[in-house]
Amino acid sequence: MDLVHVLKSAVDQGCSDVHILVGKPPMMRKNGEIRPIDPSLPVLSGEETKGLIYSMLYEDQQARFEENLELDCSHDIPGLSRFRVNVLMTLNGVESAMRVISSRIPDPDTLGITPTMLDLASLPRGMVLVTGPTGSGKSTTLACLIERANQTRSEHILTIEDPIEFVYQPRKCIIRQREVGQNTKSFPNALRAALREDPDIILVGEMRDYETIGLAVTAAETGHLCFATLHTQDAPSTVARIIDVFPAHQQAQIRVQVANSLRAVIAQLLLPRRDGKGRVAVRELMIVTPAIANQIREGKPHMIYSAIDTGAQFGMVSMDKSLAEVIKRGLVDTEVALAKAHSPDQVRTLAGLRAGPGAY
């Protein structure tokens, strides 16, 4: 069995992820569901999965995997796609999960990214966060913002990623991309060095710990525009998560720093389309106004929900309003959308449905 053939078949079918595992044929995730890539492909043994997976790894990557029993890397098949790869050791043997990364950065209009969101790429400084669960399209939304800056600004963009996903071609900007594990030891190391590398825009692939978050906030405070991702569900919980990562004696200080540096949060979900033809992105946008900055400073993130609801003049939109919109447009099943709502009753009202249990 040839891995390139397997991956090509999966990509041609429009899958989002590929899974190589023992005791199953090669599997893929398509429209959120796991299924075989090709029913004619045989079940894989432990030796076969190891052979397939090792065929795409360099010797140093194989050695790192055998030492750590985990490996994050990327794999590029010219003319097909890039893949974000995780290799893991399981009870059954060596297995892998691969996220398909489009070789082309999508057009923002096709993704439903609003002009207000795109304008975030024009900010002179501060922090912009794109949040959501794994597989919600955060990297793709970020890529659209970075590419907009690349096309419209004459500056220096520095990305720190694990692994590199989209590869940017310099337009008006110069762009340097660094991969954790390959080009730098860690996110904190790369961020500390970044402040001496004359960047205007810094992309932090993922803020995983308080050291990375603290350095990213400092970068935003010191005149850089810093983009990053977090695995949070909505804008208010994003603010709470950033603060809660820090020890109690540092939280008052970080609240002030975040209030001063945070400019916006885009929270997004991908929901299966009602017609079965792929998934649709649903987004919340919080723009940090003086009122919201004050709520962050005072440790009242729960009050941000109402500020987003009343912030339409700034281009803000709540997750519940976006969910109601996709229900009204018939894009998503009502039950699916309501399961993701902060306030299901509010979504029902906004979508013009009867309120209360059993309304749908």
Rank of each mutant, 00 (worst) to 15 (best):
A267G: 03
T238H: 03
E47M: 12
L21V: 07
M56H: 02
M98I: 14
L271K: 01
L215S: 05
A264S: 12
P78V: 13
I201W: 11
L129D: 03
E59K: 11
A193Q: 14
M316P: 00
Y305F: 15
A337F: 02
T134K: 14
G356S: 09
I202C: 03
R192T: 06
R348C: 04
S81T: 06
S322L: 04
K24Y: 13
S318F: 07
R148A: 08
H156P: 10
E155M: 13
I287R: 14
T212I: 09
I304A: 07
E325H: 11
T232H: 08
M319C: 00
G358V: 05
Q257W: 00
I296G: 01
M316Q: 02
A312S: 15
Y168L: 07
A121K: 05
R99T: 07
A355G: 07
A351Q: 07
A252G: 07
D72Q: 08
S318G: 02
Y305N: 14
P199V: 02
P357H: 12
H5Y: 09
P199D: 05
M127E: 05
N86L: 15
I266V: 15
P133A: 10
D12N: 13
A219G: 11
G356V: 07
V4Y: 06
G132R: 07
L80P: 03
G51C: 12
C144E: 04
I254R: 03
L269W: 01
Q251E: 03
E284S: 04
L195F: 05
G32N: 07
L285N: 05
L353E: 01
D234V: 03
N260K: 04
V332M: 01
P163F: 14
S96T: 10
D12S: 14
L145A: 08
M316E: 01
T140I: 10
F314Y: 11
C144R: 05
T232G: 06
A240E: 15
E59C: 01
E70S: 08
R64K: 14
V347K: 00
I287Y: 03
D119A: 15
H342Q: 13
M319I: 14
Q169S: 14
G330W: 04
F166H: 08
S343L: 05
T49K: 07
P199K: 06
C15E: 09
P301Y: 02
A193N: 12
G79S: 11
R348A: 04
K300R: 13
L111G: 12
Y210A: 05
Q313K: 14
N150Y: 15
N150D: 15
N150V: 13
I266M: 02
V288L: 06
S318N: 06
E298R: 08
Q257I: 00
A351Y: 08
L111N: 12
P39V: 12
S139T: 12
E147L: 09
K172I: 01
D200I: 11
L111F: 13
I34C: 12
A312M: 11
I20F: 06
E179M: 08
P108H: 02
A312G: 12
Q62N: 02
I37F: 13
Q257V: 00
I304M: 09
D38W: 07
A339M: 06
